[in-house]
Computed example of a mutant assay.
Amino acid sequence: MASTQVGGTTAQRPRTHGGGGAHSRARDWAEIQERMLVPLYQAVYDRLEVGPATSLLGLGCRSGLALLLAAERGAQVSGAEPETELRELAQGRGLPVSADGYEAHGERTATALPRTAHSLVTVFDQLPGTEDPAPLMAEAARRTLRGGQVVLAGWGPPERCESASVLDVAHRRAHRGAGRAPSAPFALSRPGALEALLAGAALRPAGSGLVSCPFAYADLESAVRGMLSTGLYRTAVEDSGQAVVAKELEEALQPYVRPDASVRMANVFRYVVGDKLR
């Protein structure tokens, strides 16, 4: 199993803001941004006592750190990640991650079928910015064993997230034409929104939690690259250009730059647990 070391190594790189390519954004996510959500992953795993008896599927698992942490607890893990570059990074960590979440190791045989349902399905990173979460919820419910659980996560209340003002750059720089809309990361932060998604997928709400997930970066460049890697700025970059969005991000991040040049923003994430009863 690959190491779960999450320390960043980006401060010495040239000031490129990730270059704008999909491979660069995926690498920046894995090296800079992904570790910011470790408190969320660990809080969920602690609450649900994830361990050797757990079969876990991560939907939208990105480069797979959450899966690695579950595997360290003894869980059997697999993942689904639609973005090729992120999926390849997860596979490079030795994780069974595919585009659809079915494990595929060579030919499928009657005695070696891929697992189709799991005791725990997590949706940690895919909901923020998703225009229509209904198909994702239907898939999460379908892939959960009866008696199993689904976990959804997203941003907490915007007034408790210092990154809210930085995420607003995505709205300001995204054009609203041709049926396209900028991402809305706080759309599911209102009370009851995540619970309503569970209910719509015939899952019974079974608890929730708030987790502090501060975003901390070595310097301003790392902060810009980390935020861009979230995917929430994709439309803004397409419409206004990488340089313009990066410049506005630098300006929005200025209030959070510390005397030692590091950047830190206090944030809260929320998760809900749903039981599959039938």
Rank of each mutant, 00 (worst) to 15 (best):
L40S: 07
L40G: 13
Q42I: 10
Q42W: 09
V44Y: 02
V44A: 02
D46H: 07
D46I: 04
D46A: 10
D46L: 03
R47V: 02
R47S: 03
R47T: 12
R47C: 05
R47D: 11
L48T: 03
V50M: 03
V50F: 11
V50D: 10
P52G: 04
P52A: 14
P52N: 01
T54E: 04
L56P: 07
L56W: 05
L57E: 03
L57F: 05
G58H: 12
G58C: 04
G60D: 02
C61F: 01
R62S: 10
R62A: 13
S63A: 12
S63F: 04
S63H: 05
G64D: 02
L65G: 06
A66C: 00
L67P: 00
L69W: 09
A70V: 08
A70F: 01
A71I: 04
R73G: 00
G74D: 15
A75I: 01
A75Y: 11
Q76N: 11
V77N: 08
S78V: 15
G79N: 13
G79L: 03
A80I: 05
E81S: 03
P82E: 02
P82N: 06
P82I: 06
E83K: 09
E83W: 05
E85T: 02
L86T: 14
L86H: 15
L86P: 05
R87S: 00
R87E: 07
L89A: 05
A90R: 13
A90W: 10
L95P: 13
P96E: 04
P96N: 02
A99Q: 13
D100T: 10
D100N: 05
Y102C: 00
Y102K: 05
A104L: 06
H105D: 06
G106L: 08
E107S: 13
R108Q: 14
R108G: 14
T109L: 14
T109F: 15
T111I: 01
L113A: 10
L113W: 06
R115C: 11
T116A: 15
T116V: 13
A117T: 11
L120H: 11
V121A: 08
V123C: 15
F124V: 15
F124H: 09
D125E: 10
D125T: 08
D125K: 09
L127P: 11
G129W: 09
T130Q: 12
E131N: 14
E131D: 14
D132V: 12
P133Q: 01
P133T: 06
A134R: 15
A134G: 12
P135Q: 10
A138E: 02
A138N: 12
A140C: 08
A141L: 09
R142W: 10
T144D: 02
L145R: 03
R146T: 11
R146V: 15
R146W: 01
G147T: 00
G147P: 06
G147K: 07
